[in-house]
Nucleic acid binder design. Structure first.
Lengths: 155, 155
DNA sequence: CCGCATCCGGTAAGATACTG
DNA sequence: CAGTATCTTACCGGATGCGG
């Protein structure tokens, strides 16, 4: 999308903040945009979540776990994610019905950290929809120790 | 999108991991999906980034900082983000050319944390496109102390 | 000029049926 | 079971217009 920064240049200009938020200002292209080109299309994060977090590894199971996705879109996304090295498939030739299993690569597992940040945002700002009691929750309340570990490895 | 979990139920089923990643299994709806309904549309994260991180506060400046966005889409997104309480606008009536300034609300600033996770992913896996020397970088290398603080408040 | 609104063509997504 | 094929629809992208 965008490779040049605006002239205003890496500063928070409101609420009194004025120190630069980013240490490296010499991005060739924005790392947000590059990520979004791989993860930003519709249904992509839901697919990675269901494979990686819930262990849904079959095409037909994914259709059930993501009820509104059209099979064409699911097939397209899986192909794109495979090409990106985010998911990998293993085919088991059982004559008529061939069994295909999908799993996450290391890069795909890493994308789960992004998803946890997105989900944490939802738990804070859409608690009314997310939780039965409607109370916002922090990540520490949602994820157990292993989840927190996975997440903090971002740093 | 999806409000029911699949029967496989919150377990990582590959690479030997078997402990549940999520502590709360009683989501009414998935916090990832709720977040994506607000942040998932095209250009949304770029707009929030340029307002919040770069201080771009005018319609025309946003058009320059996000060169490929059509003005219609920008206007639509700003309206949607305002309705969600993520951005807010202040109109300054300077007769003929009315000046509209956009800024982030608290909810919008919180969305920057999500973006930092997305950008960190990009810095790890698309370093060849992002950095001149092509070397992947961790968040600690990209963000300064204030950025890290902002980010770790997720926990 | 600035902040949009309108129109219009293209492409991606949705619905359904079907096949190896 | 794991996807294609086909068709329709919704959204995006690009150009242009227009009132302050």
């Amino acid at each position: 999308m965008r490779s040049k920064r605006p002239e205003t240049n890496f500063r928070i200009s409101h609420r009194g903040l004025s120190s630069p938020l980013l240490r490296f200002t010499d991005f060739v292209s924005c790392p947000l945009d590059t990520s979004l080109s791989g993860l930003g299309r519709k249904w992509t994060l839901a697919i990675i979540r269901d494979i990686g977090l819930y262990g849904v590894d079959r095409f037909s199971r994914l259709r059930k776990s993501i009820p509104d996705i059209p099979p064409k879109v699911l097939a397209t996304r899986l192909k794109q994610l495979e090409a990106q090295g985010i998911v990998r498939k293993s085919v088991e030739k059982a004559r008529p019905p061939k069994i295909v299993r999908w799993s996450l690569t290391e890069k795909g597992l890493d994308a789960l950290r992004v998803e946890m940040a997105v989900a944490a945002y939802g738990s804070r700002w859409y608690a009314g929809d997310v939780f039965e009691d409607g109370r916002p929750r922090s990540m520490r309340e949602i994820y157990n120790h292993r989840g927190i570990q996975l997440f903090t490895k971002i740093l």
